[in-house]
Simulated scan of single mutants.
Amino acid sequence: MSKGVLLVNLGSPDSTNPKDVKKYLGEFLMDPRVIDLPLWARTLLVKGIILNTRPKKSAAAYQKIWWEEGSPLIVLSERLQKKVQERVDIPVALAMRYGSMTLKKGLQSLVDQGVDEILTIPLYPQFAMATTETIDVKVEELKNEFFPQLTIKSLPAFYNKPEYIEVLSKSIAEKLEGLEYEHLLFSYHGVPERHIRKSDITNGNCKMDGKCCFKKGSKQHEFCYRHQCEMTTVQVAKNLKLKNGTYSTSFQSRLGFDPWLKPYTDRTIERMGKEGVKKMAIVTPAFVSDCLETLEEIAMEGEEIFHEVGGETFTTIPCLNERDDWADVLSKWVNEWVDVEAAVVSE
């Protein structure tokens, strides 16, 4: 069998034009794994309310961070894909879950190169319904409808892989070197609390009390986004030898009025500023590519909040983006998959 790899990221509007942003938001928010309401309720919320109020505001936010080459997330993902391709001997394609760089196009590009066995790599360190799961489900739907000849496997969440923790830790250490800071905040993309419960394969083991995340041996941890975020922080803090009290975890980008994972990033930044923290650094390990949520929501809005309440220095740490060592790690995982599959065939 001829193998290939499909890197998959979130996606982006084609431009900062409100019409393009509205189209993108419509596809994204109508995904039942993003807004997991009954179709009638999701349609009413998204098409009746959000798409009539949010596109202009979101377009203005995109305009603040848009590059000459296009969407930062797309550009950075393309650079990463190119570097991984240079490091492996099989075809590597790139696709987005939403937007014009569709999963179907990504799969077709590999098929056109003679590939019939694909490893998809969702570029999300932690598992979540609205990220990894929606990619896996959509890929399976496309396979069944258009590519029945393909054999497709997906790389599981890699939040606890030593190579990932090492490169993430190194990227943070490089930015913090010589920098005076009082607190390092690990900000992860938020999800509704009900998503955590829906992903609970133990049917009730998750208590949403912040304690079960740290219990060892729970089967639920394989699919618990909160646990995986907490463990990412713990492992990086251990690697960097951070002292207790000098770092913490929070969650950003909530939508609507339902309870989302706490503590909230914006309120945490505000609280710390009010409590006298003058120098803060912030990293966003739920993302491997800088995007609207990191470049605008954190680096711009977060800094503004911090300064408004008396904070002085607000340092944002870039995502892994197209770092050479990150491309090395992805290439290592690809080659390991190729070697394992080759060994199975030879048996």
Rank of each mutant, 00 (worst) to 15 (best):
I65H: 02
S58V: 15
Y264L: 13
C319Y: 00
S218P: 05
E296A: 08
S250W: 07
V21I: 04
R87T: 00
K238F: 08
A299C: 02
G204T: 02
K198Y: 10
G99Y: 09
Q113I: 01
N52P: 06
E312Y: 04
N17Y: 04
Q220K: 13
R271H: 04
Y164G: 03
L185K: 00
F306N: 05
E312W: 03
Y124E: 11
D266T: 13
S2K: 15
T132F: 10
R54H: 00
V277E: 11
Q228T: 14
S12I: 05
T313D: 12
F28T: 11
V277P: 03
K161M: 05
R97V: 13
Y164F: 15
K332Y: 08
D209T: 07
L242K: 11
S169W: 07
W333A: 02
M280I: 12
D258K: 11
E303W: 01
F314D: 13
L29P: 09
I196H: 10
K274S: 03
I74P: 06
G217Y: 01
I49G: 07
D14G: 13
L295N: 04
S58E: 13
Y188Q: 14
D325T: 04
E78P: 06
D266G: 12
I165M: 06
P259Y: 01
E166H: 01
A41W: 08
L150C: 08
V8H: 04
I49Y: 13
E166F: 05
S253G: 09
K198H: 12
T246Y: 06
D266M: 12
A299K: 05
V236A: 07
Q108Y: 03
W337K: 12
K216L: 13
I298M: 13
T131K: 14
N205D: 14
S71V: 01
T265A: 10
I305N: 15
A237L: 13
E312L: 12
K138T: 15
P122F: 02
D136K: 10
L320W: 05
S248H: 00
I49M: 05
V92P: 05
G276H: 00
K219T: 04
K274N: 06
S199V: 15
Q108M: 00
N321H: 04
E78V: 07
G26D: 04
W337I: 11
